[in-house]
Amino acid sequence: MAESHKCQICGKPATVHLTQIVGSKIHKIDLCEDCAREKGVTDPEGFSLGEIFGGAHAQQTGESLVCDKCGFTPKDFKKNGLFGCPDCYVKFAPVLEPMLRTMHRDIVHRGKVPARSLKKMSIRGRISAMEEQLDLAIKDERFEDAAKIRDELATMRKSMKTETK
């Protein structure tokens, strides 16, 4: 949704909304397109994302993050705003959120899911439903049912592992 903020520099309607975390404080900045451009916020080569990303992380943790899979660091991200490998998203997840909020409508995927993942997800969904059933069976002291459900769960967990490979 379009927000009716004003640019904090010149007062024109703001179209660029930045959220920056410094220490434990969240700073929100609203800029108009011209001021954003002038400050290099919309320029991927400029300070923008990398600055926010690296800055937020350093302030938050005081240590350097490195992706275990590919050796990528926030400093590398600063260079051109691109990640090193898909696993970087797992490693850098904690500092990623404020940046994603400045870029997208929301931070949760609602679009297409590839068939392979859909399979995994549907098994995952079934597993969590069965876990609930298991809890309920134990609570109701239906131990025979519980044992049956536990066996089924074990089979499903195994099949999820093999399909993930």
Binding site: G81, F83, P86, M99, L100, I107, H109, P114, S117
Partner: peptide, 20 residues
């Protein structure tokens, strides 16, 4: 085998392309 996360969707080099 595409790089995909349930939460972030298709994982792209630039976070501006994440999701779809």
């Amino acid at each position: 085998d595409y790089a995909f996360s349930d939460k972030l969707g298709y994982l792209t080099a630039c976070p501006t392309n994440l999701g779809t």
